[in-house]
Amino acid sequence: MPGYIYLICYAIIINLMAAISTVVDKHRAARHRWRIPESRLLFFAALGGSPAMLFTMLLIRHKTRHAKFMIGIPVILLAQCVVLYFGLQLFQ
């Protein structure tokens, strides 16, 4: 069971990074300042931050008009859930 602690810590950290990046990008957009590239936001989602990013996007209404995000993030999340499910099946 101790090996799962690293996975849980990683998930917490990457989800925090994804949520914070989304909030910072929204804040900068409102002030017409330099923005976080969309590729970086999607990269954080692909690394495992998709749950927090999707929740944050909907909560603060950021990137909700962009199909790349409103379709892409849920697809990434679904793919990650499938990989996690089958990955856990291998260790049982």
Rank of each mutant, 00 (worst) to 15 (best):
Q92V: 10
F44T: 04
R33L: 15
H62W: 02
L47N: 05
H27F: 15
F43W: 14
W34P: 01
I8A: 14
V23Y: 15
H66S: 14
R40Y: 11
A29L: 00
S50T: 04
I60T: 09
I5R: 08
R65P: 01
L42C: 06
R61V: 02
I14V: 15
A30M: 13
A45Q: 02
R33C: 13
M53F: 02
H66F: 06
L84M: 10
R35Q: 14
L78K: 00
P74E: 00
L90C: 04
G72R: 08
A46H: 01
A79L: 12
I60V: 15
K26I: 07
F69S: 09
L54P: 01
H27K: 15
L59D: 03
G48K: 08
A11I: 02
V23P: 02
I20W: 07
S39G: 02
T56G: 03
K63P: 06
R31C: 06
L88H: 04
H62L: 04
L58M: 14
F69I: 10
A46W: 09
C9P: 00
Y4A: 06
F91T: 06
Q92E: 06
Y6I: 12
M53K: 00
I14W: 13
C9N: 10
S39P: 01
L84R: 01
F43Y: 12
I12V: 15
H32Y: 13
L7E: 03
F44K: 01
F91L: 12
R40F: 12
L16S: 08
A18Q: 03
A67I: 13
G49H: 05
I12A: 15
A29K: 01
G3N: 11
R35A: 11
S50Q: 07
Q92F: 10
L78R: 00
A19I: 11
V83G: 01
A45K: 03
L84K: 01
I36P: 03
V83R: 03
L84I: 09
M70W: 09
L16M: 14
G3P: 01
Y10A: 08
A52T: 05
Q92G: 04
L7Y: 10
L59A: 14
F86A: 00
L88D: 00
I12G: 10
I20L: 12
F86V: 04
F43K: 12
A67W: 13
H62G: 08
L58R: 15
Q89A: 11
L54F: 14
H62A: 05
G49K: 09
I71F: 07
L54S: 03
Y85D: 01
L58C: 09
G72S: 08
I8T: 14
M70L: 09
G48R: 08
F44M: 10
A19K: 10
E38Q: 06
W34Y: 10
M57R: 03
I5C: 01
R65D: 13
L59Y: 11
H66G: 03
L16P: 00
I71R: 11
F44C: 01
T22K: 07
A29P: 02
F44S: 02
G87R: 03
V24I: 15
Y6F: 13
I36V: 15
A67L: 14
Y85T: 07
A45S: 13
A45C: 14
R40A: 13
V24R: 14
D25A: 11
L54H: 10
D25W: 12
L41M: 08
Y10T: 08
V82T: 09
C9T: 11
K26E: 05
M57P: 03
L7F: 12
L58T: 09
A79D: 00
K63M: 07
S39T: 11
I60P: 10
I5P: 00
I8K: 11
